[in-house]
Design a protein around this nucleic acid. Sequence first.
DNA 1: ACCTGAACACCGTTCAAGT
DNA 2: ACCTGAACACCGTTCAAGT
Lengths: 207, 207
Amino acid sequence: MSRGTKRRSYHHGNLRRALIDAALELVSENGPHGFSMREAARRAGVSSGAPYKHFPDRDALMRAISAEGEQRLLAAMDEEMARAGTEPTARFRAMGIAYVKFAVANPSYFRVMTMPEYLDAEQETTIQGQEDAVHAIISSAQASGAMTADDPRVVSLAAHCLVYGLARLFIDGHLARDGIGPQQAEAVATAVTGVFGRGLVPRKPDQ
Amino acid sequence: MSRGTKRRSYHHGNLRRALIDAALELVSENGPHGFSMREAARRAGVSSGAPYKHFPDRDALMRAISAEGEQRLLAAMDEEMARAGTEPTARFRAMGIAYVKFAVANPSYFRVMTMPEYLDAEQETTIQGQEDAVHAIISSAQASGAMTADDPRVVSLAAHCLVYGLARLFIDGHLARDGIGPQQAEAVATAVTGVFGRGLVPRKPDQ
DNA sequence: ACCTGAACACCGTTCAAGT
DNA sequence: ACCTGAACACCGTTCAAGT
């Protein structure tokens, strides 16, 4: 058996996995731009042609990363929602905060996942399913009187924009400039979703 | 003088401009991925080494596009804000809607502008200035009682997230799937900013 | 069944040479 | 001052050949 560290040959092991891991490493070091098929192969200790036994082309490897990230994101959101209990607005907010936390904790996955060129049909149906789940939560919150009766599609869209935009601003370093680091992701997401929930127009009785 | 169409030589003309235009064309045809220095040179009718007299490297050309797009975005927002009058919340909302409209109308500029690797220091100070202007509007709206007294930084951040996220969803085709096209950009931006202004938590007296 | 390594057409970038 | 075109080191992808 392999003693301790990695073997220099994957004839027997899992080259597919090793290539994905190497690609994630390269993305985290130099951005999506800095990944190449040949360098990933080199890091996996394999010749330049070998990856093509596992992925038809460069884009397919990226799509595999994108799909894997998507699964992890969904799992993370499910977990946080379970922790949030059964009240729909609490679940809704927990989902948004979990989204931002995932992005900040997994920037390489997030950057690849959010490149439109790496979304395949299979993943689009996963996303569609997730959107349906969001609509169900919104409807349920509205039915119980805990949420305004705005068009659920608009509410869902606005919420999606909000958390996606926040995640991007974190990942792209636009908040680091203002001294906001990854450790504050949860606090910032909580503040931003709070403002979104209460609205900007003052409430008459509270004035 | 040049009769009608483009000359095949830029010895005399403006190669810098021609390269930027060719690059924008390539981005709009194949995405940022599909742009290459050599192909831009080819389209400008010039040899592979010529671009390097005008741009030190590929990234510099992209940064030039990014900066140019930024200027156009600021101009578009200023125009719409002037049209919106003097009431701060109306100006604030007009700015957000103008942002989304610009992105949808200029996807190539927007895609390049939003790649963090193509932001230079100069552009960051422009962005900083814009952020300060946003804070001024928010303070003014709060002072007149037309906006809640939330932390202006959080309000500004949430608004930024919202419009950036919406622009991205448009550009990346996530709304086309739901049958929402570019012509609906203004209507959708109006709906989304409306929900954001009113909030999701129901208002007691209106219930 | 899986990997090697040469091959081809590309790309970014440099640089001596031309006008 | 600006452009050419060969050169070099890279990259994606293919494919005959090896095990």
